[in-house]
């Protein structure tokens, strides 16, 4: 479902609207920068963490890169570390920072903590909560009811492919 929101998948029926516009009519490349996405499994690219950030924004300068890492609670010593040698939690935080450097208007997260330990999970939840508190709407998909209770302002429950709006936490 999230992939339909940034046009990585085209819906077979129905339509997805973003701020009133059918996404099928929007430029997919611009849409994907406006609607950032973090995936279930960390997907660091080969190269350093800075190289990863520059995949998202090639002209990114050092100061902006350090700011992006700070949003993911990583210090600047990470910039020159090989991204593929990071722990799962660190790699997922780099993926979050990489998405944030595109300046997204909305964040989509597809079970981003499913492969992380408790400590890394809580760290990522804290970072994303900070983004939401800062005014970036976040759509977080989770199978973890406890996590939903901890994090969500609004809950939409999908059961057997149908949407049921559950009471708010």
């Amino acid at each position: 479902m999230l992939r339909c929101c940034n046009r990585l998948v085209a819906p077979t029926t129905g339509r997805v609207c973003f701020r009133g516009d059918d996404v099928a009519g929007l430029d997919p490349l611009r849409l994907r920068r406006r609607v950032g996405m973090v995936f279930q499994r960390p997907t660091p690219f080969p190269g350093t963490v800075l190289d990863n950030l520059r995949v998202a924004t090639p002209a990114l300068d050092g100061a902006a890169a350090i700011d992006a890492l700070a949003c993911a609670e990583l210090d600047e010593s990470f910039l020159n570390r090989p991204a593929t040698e990071l722990s799962g939690g660190e790699a997922q935080r780099v993926c979050l920072a990489r998405t944030l450097v595109t300046g997204p208007e909305v964040l989509l997260l597809d079970e981003p903590t499913s492969s992380l330990d408790d400590q890394a999970t809580h760290a990522l939840e804290r970072m994303v909560r900070a983004q939401a508190d800062g005014g970036v709407p976040v759509v977080w998909v989770s199978h973890d009811a406890e996590q939903v209770r901890r994090l969500a302002d609004h809950v939409v429950r999908v059961v057997a492919g149908r949407i049921e709006t559950a009471p708010q936490p």
């Binding site: 940034n6 994907r32 997907t43 690219f45 595109t102």
Partner: peptide, 10 residues
């Protein structure tokens, strides 16, 4: 996964 992550960055 990697390719789609790149696409998702625009």
């Amino acid at each position: 996964d990697e390719v789609e992550a790149r696409l998702a960055l625009g």
